[in-house]
Design a protein around this nucleic acid. Structure first.
Length: 270
DNA sequence: GCATTACCCTGAAAGC
DNA sequence: TGCTTTCAGGGTAATG
């Protein structure tokens, strides 16, 4: 989500107010087939606003329509002031009437491009099921404690579940659990109100720091100007297997949970 | 109905 | 050197 927020902020400066003059598609499917309707729906419309909800970007178009974008894992959006050669993984190029263009690249093709003509953003099917935003004032200790109480799964899976809290990925979940001093395998319903409070604080701190650093770049992430983020320099636990925990000095371990790596400190995460 | 697992995909890294 | 295997992870359909 911090990576998506970084891109949203960039796009607000670069493409808002531009009219779509044409679209070129690779024809390859992403998470779902892209299809010719994307071109039909966007052609001639003007981008009025850029929204973010969870890990989704939403361009509000005029005449009224919404353009939904998800970057998956390896998706990137590049703004180009001048002409470019499409790469092997360019799946969409949006040409604006002022000769600038926006390129969507996605080697792994886990992303999504779609358009909707619903009345409100909240009616977009992909967004309907999303949970609370991590930085929303609605997510406080009481609300998180309430959500945790009725959940029997491990707290790591809970935090990754976009229908509970929308926007946390594997990196930030590992970091937040370390900040909160909570073991990733703890069952949600066993967390106390005090622990829920620590977790809310840790999630906010983790996400705010990552946004401030313009996202985390290992290999994939670049913003729409092609710049990597800086947050990888500030991570305390993610991909630190074998290193010493900065809080207690114990060896950081790695385990697999639900087919994803979890990094944790066995000493200070209880 | 909820929790868990498997799958999609390709590039990079590791292993041989 | 070059080929093969493994791993990475967001979302979701399938399974338990």
């Amino acid at each position: 989500m911090p990576e998506v927020e970084t891109i949203a902020r960039n796009l607000r400066k670069t493409i808002v107010g531009k009219r779509v003059a044409g679209i070129r598609l690779s024809g390859l499917p992403l998470r779902k087939p892209v299809g010719g309707t994307l071109a039909e729906k966007l052609q001639g419309r003007v981008i009025r606003k850029i929204h973010r909800r969870g890990k989704y970007l939403i361009a509000e178009m005029e005449p009224h329509a919404f353009w939904l974008i998800h970057l998956g894992m390896s998706g990137r959006l590049y703004f180009h002031p001048t002409e470019i050669q499409p790469s092997k993984h360019t799946h969409a190029t949006i040409f604006f009437s002022d000769a600038t263009r926006l390129e969507y690249r996605d080697p792994r093709r886990f992303g999504l491009l779609a358009t909707y003509e619903v009345a409100k953003i909240s009616q977009i099917p992909e967004l309907r099921a999303l949970g609370v935003e991590p930085l929303s004032p609605k997510l406080d200790r009481e609300e998180l404690a309430r959500l945790l109480k009725k959940c029997r799964s491990e707290v790591k899976s809970f935090l990754l579940d976009q229908s509970k809290i929308a926007g946390l990925g594997n990196i930030y979940v590992c970091e937040a659990l370390h900040w909160a001093g909570l073991h990733p395998s703890r069952r949600c319903f066993t967390l106390s109100r005090e622990e829920a409070g620590r977790l809310v604080h840790a999630v906010r701190r983790t996400v705010k720091q990552a946004i401030r650093n313009r996202g985390t770049s290992f290999s994939d992430f670049r913003d729409s100007d092609g710049k990597p983020g800086d947050n990888q320099k500030f991570l305390r636990i993610f991909q630190k297997e074998g290193e010493k925990c900065r809080r207690c000095g114990s060896m950081i371990l790695r385990m697999r949970q639900g087919n994803r790596s979890t990094f944790y400190c066995p000493c200070c995460q209880k």
